[in-house]
Design a protein around this nucleic acid. Sequence first.
DNA 1: GCCAACGTTGGC
DNA 2: GCCAACGTTGGC
Length: 158
Amino acid sequence: MRYWLMKSEPGCFSVDDLAERPDSTTPWDGVRNYQARNFMRDDMKAGDRVLFYHSNCEEPGVAGLAEIACEAYADYTAFNPAEKHYDPKSVPEKPVWMMVDVKLVDKFDRVVTLKEIKADDRLSGMELVRKGSRLSVQPVSENEYKTILRMAGYDEKK
DNA sequence: GCCAACGTTGGC
DNA sequence: GCCAACGTTGGC
C-alpha cells in the first residue's frame, strides 16, 4: 500500500464537499501536470491512502483521510471544450490526462496545518515543504503518513 | 535545443 | 493582493 497527498482548494472543492458526494467519492479531474498525472496513472492502486490537503486558503493543511477508489482512467473533462481544463491535445482515442476516483475515509477532527508540518522535524522531508514545490499529487512516506494521522488525533483502527 | 515570455500555483 | 517559483509555449 502506498500513501499520497492530494491538494484541493477548499473554496473550489473541500473535504466537506467530498463528504457530500454520493458514496463520498469523486473523480479527481483537472490535473494538468505530467508528474502528477504519472503518479496517478502509474503508481496509484485502489486502497492506497490519501492525505486530503487544503491549499490556497486561510488555514492550509491536511483536513482528512481519503483513499484511492479505482485505478486511473481518462480524464474526460479534457475532451470537453466547455470545461475549464479542456485540452485539445487529449482526445478519447489517445487521452493525455488521467484521473483516479478518490473516496473519503474520514474528515479529521482538526486540520493538521502546514505551519505544524513545517515545524515538525519528522516531516522535513515531505515534498509539500520542499522549497518551490507545487505538485498537487505527491507521494508520502509511511512514517510521514502515520505522523500526520497521529497529529490529527486520528485512530486508523476505529 | 535555447531561452524569454507567459500563465499558474499557493503561501503569506 | 503580492510575488517567488515553477511548468509550458513558441520563436529562433
